[in-house]
Design a protein around this nucleic acid. Sequence first.
RNA 1: GGAUGGGUGCCCGAGUGGCGAAGGGGCCAGACUGUAAAUCUGGUGCCGACUGGCAUAACACCGCAGGUUCGACUCCUGCUCCAUCCA
Length: 312
Amino acid sequence: MKKKIVVIIGPTAVGKTKYAIRIAQNLDGEILSADSMQVYEHMNIGSAKPTDEELATVRHHLIGEVDPLQEWSAAEYQKKAKFWIDEMFSRGKLPIICGGTGLYVNSLIYDMDFSTAKGDESLRKELQLLADTMGGQALHDRLTKVDPTAAERIHPNNIKKMIRAIEVVETAGKGIPAFDGVFQKSGDYDSIMIGLNIDRQILYNRIEQRVDAMIEAGLVDEVRMLLALGLTEDDNSMKGIGYKELIGFLQNEYSLKEAVMKIKQNSRNYAKRQMTWFRRYDNIKWFDLTDTVNFEQSVQEVTEYIQSKLVV
RNA sequence: GGAUGGGUGCCCGAGUGGCGAAGGGGCCAGACUGUAAAUCUGGUGCCGACUGGCAUAACACCGCAGGUUCGACUCCUGCUCCAUCCA
């Protein structure tokens, strides 16, 4: 029988962190983050990392472990995450995956093979140049020649996706594994999927409050510090919401007030996209937190649900 | 009191006789196999499954009220509000 992992997902600011910690305590688990920004060192406030206190309560993995100057990718994530899951199993701990990065979650709950082709910087640059000078259609034509199936799936405006598709074919000799919207569940373990959601308007309000709190907690200084470390707006880590907008402010492109508005805006849009992604999961148990008045009781409900699934 | 510019759909904003009004934002929905907090797509007056229907009865119909015209957001008149400048 395959071993079981718990996966807690939901839009940003819904309260995943708090739930995951309490559930880990209840079920003798450890938390494995599935968050593309929280993996980075020094990016604490803006990525809404768990606090030091929280990190001390339950052991966490893949939080603050990557130098933001370093290259990082979903493939890298998958490799390390799987390592940690096995490691937790070996110590008898229940792995609790918690995070809002859909692709990272997919890389664990489905069989996804990122190994076929590594990134090829020079080819990427060449293709980007082609797109810049000749337009997206030219790239799409080229993709059609080497991988018609992929070309059918990818819109000519989606430069990034086309570049990757071409890269895969030209370096690996075959295209991205075809998929028809049906994912193959992971062969390594079974996932108990928990979705946390809340009324949209309430979520949006929480996001705005949290952004204000981040600013008060010193987000601007955090960004200053990262820039001082040599990070620039071109680094992926600095493309995170809360970071890219403040760079603009620090470069005097707009006021702090405007930067804050942009952060709120982008966070809201992000939350929405996350929901689009998560709604596709079947076998997920959604918990609507809209009317939750008692946090502990709510945690208890989720815990009991997981327990019922662990026994089966 | 005088001069000039302007009041357009949730917001910004284009439009100078055929507009249920470009474009952008927001919002809603969707896609997603090595950058994913990224990248991209569609919808958004109302009804509807539609290349369909509805503007003298949901609402709205380009600040308000009239006028000219087959027809006006676009032209004319008056009023009103805002901005800047002069008194």
